[in-house]
């Protein structure tokens, strides 16, 4: 099979699966202890509230016990599965965007630098900008009554992040031939303006009743996991692209330079 679109999709989903697996294992080791602690604190908090309610209310009060569908161990496994599914799906979407953006030049030209640039833009669009506006919350934070509203805000933030990065790309392309500082400055300012626009959205309505150190640890690990996801994805996607380019004999002056500068991917 030599359909270039299918093989590009294959590279995207393969790189996404690898990136998801690595991210899942990373967060299983480092983020799960923090999430387990957050859940212990949540249980202690709700037990206290329940006890207080019992002290006040009459005997008729029904103690609402939270029935769990999965054990914590199963949810740990679920984290890795979720990361792999998300990685594959994001990899497929990335490959589609990559195909549309590079449809005129072919998918194999300058495979490595393009993979890095596109992955950086994707990370900023779907992880960094939405994450700065609506930072990740550890388990135990999040009101079931506001989840619909928060999902709309989060989706809006992701869409605005993607639109901002598309605008930055278009500005960079349309300023071709101008000085590099001007082009790169335009890209940076577009990113900053997108972040400013995100802060016009309403804030997260939920309280965050967890210790500040736990919140910081969790948010750093959340952002770190997403940095890792996109970094591994960029490396695998770019490496597979280089290998495919070498096989297909794509040798633009720039891509052969890149091939020489990078260790052979075999």
């Amino acid at each position: 099979m030599s359909n270039p679109t299918l093989t590009l999709l294959g590279r995207g989903t393969a790189a996404g699966g690898v990136a998801g697996l690595v991210t899942g294992l990373f967060s299983l080791l480092l983020a799960e202890p923090v999430m387990d602690r957050a859940i212990e604190l949540e249980e202690a908090r709700s037990a206290k509230e329940e006890a207080a309610e019992h002290a006040h209310a009459a005997a008729g009060a029904v103690a609402e016990h939270h029935e769990e569908l999965f054990t914590r161990g199963q949810q740990h496994f679920g984290l890795v599965v979720t990361a792999i599914i998300a990685g594959i799906a994001l990899g497929a979407l990335f490959a589609v965007a990559y195909a549309l953006i590079h449809r005129r030049t072919g998918y194999l030209v300058r495979a490595w630098p393009r993979a890095l640039a596109c992955c950086a833009a994707a990370f900023v669009a779907v992880a960094l900008l939405p994450g700065l506006r609506y930072p990740a919350a550890p388990p135990g934070v999040g009101d079931a009554n506001t989840v619909g509203e928060r999902q709309q805000l989060w989706l809006a933030a992701v869409v605005i992040g993607i639109l901002g990065m598309l605008l930055a790309w278009q500005l960079y392309v349309r300023l071709a031939g101008r000085a590099e500082p001007l082009r790169q400055g335009a890209v940076f300012l577009t990113g900053a303006a997108t972040l400013a626009v995100l802060f016009l959205l309403p804030g997260n309505p939920d309280e965050v009743p967890v210790p500040a150190t736990l919140l910081w640890d969790f948010r750093v690990l959340s952002l770190g996991s997403q940095v890792l996801l996109w970094a591994v994805f960029a490396a695998v996607f770019g490496g597979l692209g280089l290998r495919a380019a070498a096989k297909a004999g794509v040798n633009s002056p720039v891509s052969s330079q890149d091939l020489a500068a990078t260790a052979p991917v075999k």
């Binding site: 899942g24 967060s27 983020a31 799960e32 999430m35 769990e68 569908l69 999965f70 199963q74 949810q75 740990h76 679920g78 984290l79 599965v81 979720t82 990361a83 998300a86 992880a127 939405p130 994450g131 609506y134 930072p135 990740a136 919350a137 550890p138 388990p139 999040g142 009101d143 079931a144 989840v147 928060r150 999902q151 805000l153 989060w154 969790f218 690990l221 959340s222 996991s225 997403q226």
Partner: peptide, 20 residues
Amino acid sequence: GSYLHEFSHDGRHLFGAPCH
């Protein structure tokens, strides 16, 4: 019930997706 929600619970929190 929310089997998918609960199974992917930790991943949702980690990737910043809104959760209950």
